[in-house]
């Protein structure tokens, strides 16, 4: 555990809580891509199956349970409790175009050809592109609420901090996970355009187009 890893995890947690609270407080999920949230629930489910097979630390176990729980709570709020406010007409990204290729890639490029390891690899690849339906939705409607942009910013910061974490671990621990690093770089790059808009527009006018 290093400072980049810890702040990355906390930034990730902040993003998840911000989204959940926004939907709960406004009693609306307008502008939120339910498809991205389904993908994140799928990411956490397939990655954290090791909760059932191995214990790493209390921190690790608690965070995994919180992430999974919040992901399903968010999906529930969007598709059940506040379904009437869900903007399905603008959430038109075809997620099978992500899930199917990512599933194929996980079978072909992995550390070990075992069920848990393939599912872990699938979750890493899928996470790197899971935000695309949300970004697609924003590009389609041409706007996002400020709080939604804070959510996206925290998510992007989390992945960027993980990159620094991997650099740290490479130098000080000799740790090197090519699958996580390549997927992490791809994921961070996807946020770059958004980062630029966030810094130049959101802070200036509190709403961006």
């Amino acid at each position: 555990m290093n400072v980049f890893r810890l702040t990355g995890d906390l930034s990730h947690l902040a993003a998840i809580i911000i989204l959940l609270l926004k939907i709960w407080k406004t009693r609306s999920c307008a502008g939120i891509s339910g498809k991205s949230q389904i993908l994140f629930a799928l990411v956490f489910t397939t990655r954290y199956l090791d909760l059932l097979t191995s214990f790493i630390s209390l921190y690790n176990t608690c965070m995994k349970i919180i992430y999974v729980g919040c992901a399903y709570a968010t999906v529930y709020l969007i598709y059940a409790k506040f379904r009437a406010t869900y903007d399905g007409n603008h959430d038109t990204f075809r997620i099978e175009f992500l899930v199917v290729p990512v599933g194929g890639l996980a079978f072909l490029v992995n550390h070990d050809f075992s069920p848990l390891e393939i599912l872990w690899t699938f979750s890493i690849y899928l996470e790197s592109v899971a935000i695309l339906p949300q970004l697609f939705m924003i590009s389609k409607t041409g706007e996002a609420e400020t709080i939604t942009t804070h959510y996206l910013f925290c998510l992007g910061v989390y992945r960027a901090l993980y990159l620094f974490n991997w650099i740290w671990r490479f130098y000080f621990e000799g740790f090197f996970d090519m699958i996580a690093i390549v997927a992490g770089v791809v994921q961070t790059i996807l946020y770059c355009d958004f980062f630029y808009l966030y810094v130049t527009k959101v802070n200036a006018v509190q709403r961006f187009q």
Binding site: R5, R47, T53, S54, S57, H111, W120, Y162, F176, D177
Partner: peptide, 10 residues
Amino acid sequence: GTLVEDHDEL
């Protein structure tokens, strides 16, 4: 390299 099924990161 990484140890399989020892993914400590979240």
